[in-house]
Computed example of a mutant assay.
Amino acid sequence: MQTLKTLVFISLALMAFAGNSVLCRLALGGGLMDAAGFTVFRLLSGALTLMIICLFLSHQTADGITSFFKPTGRQIKGALMLFSYALCFSYAYVLLDTGTGALILFAAVQLTLLLANFLAGKRFVFIEWLGVLLSFSGLIYLLLPAWGTPSLMGFVLMTCSGVAWGLYTLAGKGSEKPLLETTKNFIWCVPLAFLLSLLSFQPNVWTSHGLILAVISGALTSGVGYAIWYAVLPKLSLSQAGVLQLLVPVLAALGGVVFAAELLTIRLMLSAALVLGGIYLVLVSTKSASPSE
């Protein structure tokens, strides 16, 4: 039963990640909102939603809100990583398409976690390396036709976003209260969001559709999705956490088939098989490993 709950949580978190890429690209690629405005409303709506959920689940009164504004060094670091990820993510998607952005993002996440493993003195066994390479090859096979020549600035920004998200994932490995910690991380992003709004205030380019997309991204696919991810991270090794996220671009592509009437191609099916096969190898190879790895 516990394994089923973990699988459900992982699935929900990965679908939220895929949703973020789609929502951000719809808003920014379609010119419905500027990157700074999208980031600000995304973080604000995420902070507000999570605070309400925390208060509701803990049955606290409004006085309990004050507990959210007592940061620790861990919360400040988490907020900085989360803000850096969200800011670079938004600006990158002005320059990149959804598939290319997702490939760069999660490749950077995977490499960040691999490096963290290496610096911690932990080494992958052969079957883990094989699984990671198999998943990478499936992802590249899926997105190669749409790769083209990505913008250099878009590439750099999305790589920075991936590194920040990888570090945010690392921080979540030690999370004891995932919902509360995610809430505080979002809350302490708010001052940074206000500073960003002062530096780049362009309400003339905001549309109602763009605002709705930003709020959905913040409240659901970011706020709730990231809290779920923090809840499941302590049960995963770093190799598992990294390789599982390589499934996100595939989920985004499958979402296009289901919700946008896009074609289910042989390329998509083969890519999904490669990514899933690689994930299976990593999961099997680390099955007996401690969650703290």
Rank of each mutant, 00 (worst) to 15 (best):
L143G: 05
L32A: 12
L196M: 09
G210M: 03
T221R: 08
G121F: 07
N117D: 14
S151R: 03
A47G: 02
Y91I: 08
L119I: 14
A273L: 15
V132H: 05
P145Q: 01
W129D: 08
L142V: 08
W229T: 02
L55D: 02
Q240S: 11
L244C: 04
L198F: 12
S285E: 14
F17N: 12
L157C: 05
T169N: 03
L167F: 15
S84N: 03
F136L: 15
Y230L: 15
A260R: 10
V224G: 01
T207G: 04
K70L: 06
F89R: 03
H59W: 01
E293R: 14
M158R: 03
L142G: 14
C54I: 07
P145W: 01
V284A: 15
A120T: 07
G223N: 13
W129I: 08
L264D: 13
A289C: 02
G162M: 01
I127Q: 13
S271Q: 05
A102P: 09
A36H: 01
A214K: 08
L244A: 08
T159V: 11
L113V: 05
F83N: 02
T49L: 09
S197C: 01
A92D: 12
L23H: 03
G174W: 00
M153C: 10
V215T: 11
L199T: 08
V109D: 10
M153Y: 10
A16G: 11
S239G: 12
C189S: 09
P145R: 06
T286W: 01
A120Q: 13
